[in-house]
Computed example of a mutant assay.
Amino acid sequence: MREALEALKATQGVRVAALLSEDGFVVEEVREEDTPEPGLLSARAATVLGTAKALGQTLGQEGLEEVMVEYPEGALLLVPLPGHHLLLLLDGVRSLGRVRLALKRWLPQIAEALT
């Protein structure tokens, strides 16, 4: 698990990579020193994912692949996993393509480690 988070964090543009429990507790994290602690973000991130899932159900959509929130100085990417979710804090949306490619490589290993 740690290896996958470190690899995701090493992707250009990723400032924080954290695995969070479904109820918002930090399981594992890798981050730059000057970034917010995932523990401060985790409960709110769980709420965002729950809201996004409920919105999808209202729209007749099954499942949720990811939620991306863009801010003037960065972006937050949330990816649901079995009983958990992955939180990635990016330096901006210009890094999103690289990050999504890294996710395609590492998400299967993370999901497998969680089962």
Rank of each mutant, 00 (worst) to 15 (best):
E29N: 06
R2A: 12
L64W: 10
I110P: 05
E33N: 07
L103I: 02
V67Q: 06
G13F: 06
E73S: 13
S21H: 03
A113C: 00
E37V: 02
T58E: 11
A113K: 08
V14N: 09
A54V: 09
A43K: 11
V69S: 14
Y71V: 10
G60K: 11
E29Q: 13
Q109R: 15
H85R: 01
R105H: 12
A18D: 03
E3A: 09
T115H: 12
S95Y: 03
E62M: 03
G92I: 13
E28D: 13
G56E: 13
E65N: 08
R31N: 04
P82D: 12
Q109C: 00
P36H: 02
A18T: 08
A102T: 05
K104C: 05
E22N: 07
A113E: 08
L77S: 09
V16I: 13
E3L: 03
R2I: 08
L8G: 10
L76E: 07
L19C: 05
V27W: 04
V48M: 10
R31L: 01
V99C: 08
L81M: 11
L78C: 05
L114D: 05
H84G: 10
R44S: 07
L8F: 05
E29S: 14
K53A: 15
R100G: 07
H85W: 11
W106A: 00
T58D: 06
A54W: 04
A52F: 08
G63I: 11
L40A: 14
D34V: 07
P108H: 11
D91C: 10
P108C: 08
L76S: 04
S21L: 05
T11Y: 06
A4P: 00
E73R: 14
E6S: 10
D34G: 14
R100D: 13
A46E: 01
